[in-house]
């Protein structure tokens, strides 16, 4: 399980996470699922955090309609939603109990820790088949030309 994140995409995530601070920022990772369980991110879609105001510093919510629209757009461009990214303001880049409760299978969950407004680390996770835990994915920051894995 490996997530390949090109530097441009990583920058987009960093900018969104830092702009959202002290709230959580979130969005979608569009890209390709490749042989050997590699996911290659081609595009980052930042979405609005629709969780009610007051708790957005520890919660995020992406609306079904936003997701549906993004899924349609991605398909037109030949991409798949391979994962979800969200930030943990002043909190470790690992899934919380709430993340586990809400998690969907298949998606890679990229969690970015933002300390005092600055991104410090990102880690990638995937829900285990029995829903009891997340397994960590290898995160590779590189920009191989698409299709040459």
């Amino acid at each position: 399980m490996t997530l390949i994140l090109p530097p441009g995409a990583a920058d987009d995530i960093r900018r969104h996470a830092e702009a959202a601070y002290p709230d959580e920022g979130a969005g979608l990772l569009l890209g390709f699922v490749e042989a050997g369980d590699y996911r290659r991110v081609a595009q980052v879609v930042s979405l609005a955090n629709r969780w009610e105001t007051g708790a957005r510093h520890q919660r995020y919510l992406l609306e079904p309609r936003d997701l549906m629209a993004a899924e349609d757009r991605a398909e037109i461009e030949g991409l798949t939603i391979v994962g979800i990214f969200h930030s943990h303001p002043d909190h470790p880049a690992q899934p919380s109990a709430f993340d586990l409760e809400q998690a969907l299978p298949f998606y890679t969950y990229l969690i970015t820790r933002v300390d005092s407004g600055t991104v410090v680390a990102s880690r990638a996770w995937r829900l285990a088949e029995d829903r009891t835990r997340f397994d960590e994915e290898t995160l590779e920051l590189r920009s191989d030309p698409i299709g040459k894995s």
């Binding site: 919660r59 995020y60 079904p64 997701l67 709430f98 993340d99 809400q102």
Partner: peptide, 9 residues
């Protein structure tokens, strides 16, 4: 359609 939620502790 899933709504996607989560967040820190």
């Amino acid at each position: 359609v899933p709504s996607i939620a989560g967040g820190g502790e």
